[in-house]
Simulated assay, not measured.
Amino acid sequence: MAGVKRIEAILSGSEPFKVIDMEVKNYLPILSDYHRMSPFFMLDHGPPKRFSPISGEGRVDGLHPHRGLETVTVVYEGAITHYDTKGNGGTIHKDEAQWMTAGAGIQHTEFPELPEGGLSEMIQLWVLLPQAYKMTEPKYQPLTRETIKSVPVRDGEVRIIAGNYSGVNGPATSFTPIHLLDVRLEMGGEAELAFPAHFNTGVFVVKGEVEVNSDTTVASGNFILFENAGEDLMLKSLSDRTVLLVLSGQPLQEPIAHRGPFVMNTPEELDKAYQDFWSGKFG
């Protein structure tokens, strides 16, 4: 036995704040430590919100740029529509995700697609691109119910968005080793997980309540950060339905420079990103 991954901290997130029509809480970065959950950089959770019916196509989150990272949106309720300046677009629904590689530079917009009204809940992650791929060509990956594979566990399932679980690969491609798992458990359901000891690993409790390694109980709306030691995790549901987003990835051993929508390696590269954006090179 390699030993269990023990809890380092349980994070309750920031005070809620508005992002266009969504109210979200932020959980990453941790106290401005950009490296602690690398290659995962940002995690925002938009808790359940009910929208009233509207006319037109939806609510618009204004067009904005990115460089040097990937944005990943996971939908738990409702639907999210995406458009970008490379011509990609589409709508993902409940239990689906989208993975946009900003790379060298792109502008995009995404918004709740609920013209008839309804409930919306989502998580957005930023995943850092390694230095060698900061300026890669942008791309877009829609990850639908049909492409996200599921592995049954005791009274539940593990849905693999990226990486691998129990020999099953997720549909998303990434530039560094990453596991992104959507775990669904009924009351008493259990999932056994294992990740390399040095991987940065965390679990966000989306719904319900979970018992971690038979000794710590964590309720919804909390992010569990694990120490970089041990490999094994046991997650047990203590509610009728528990939903968890599990993140584990190989840390990037390189400088991180962040300003606004850009994440690069040096302040000079951030300056260049803004210059390129202002000069119209992001479309």
Rank of each mutant, 00 (worst) to 15 (best):
T109I: 09
I80Q: 05
G56C: 11
V72H: 01
N88D: 10
M122Q: 12
D44I: 07
E116Y: 06
T73E: 03
G103L: 06
P115E: 08
G118N: 07
W99D: 02
V60L: 12
R67N: 04
A79K: 09
G103N: 00
I92M: 07
S38N: 02
M42A: 15
P48H: 00
G89M: 03
D95I: 08
T85Q: 09
G118S: 07
H64Y: 10
P39G: 08
G105H: 08
S120D: 15
M42F: 12
T71N: 13
D95M: 09
H66C: 10
G117I: 04
T81V: 13
I30Y: 15
F111T: 10
Y76V: 09
G118P: 02
E96A: 03
L28F: 11
E116V: 03
P112F: 09
I80K: 00
P112G: 03
S38M: 08
P112M: 08
K49S: 12
P39Y: 01
P47M: 06
S120G: 13
H108V: 07
G90H: 06
G87K: 03
T91K: 05
T71S: 14
G87E: 10
H66Y: 00
M122N: 13
M37T: 06
H82L: 02
D61I: 11
G46W: 05
T71W: 10
T91S: 01
A102Y: 04
I92R: 04
P39R: 07
Q98R: 07
P53W: 11
I80N: 06
E116I: 10
P39N: 12
K86N: 09
L31T: 15
I106R: 08
M37C: 02
V60K: 12
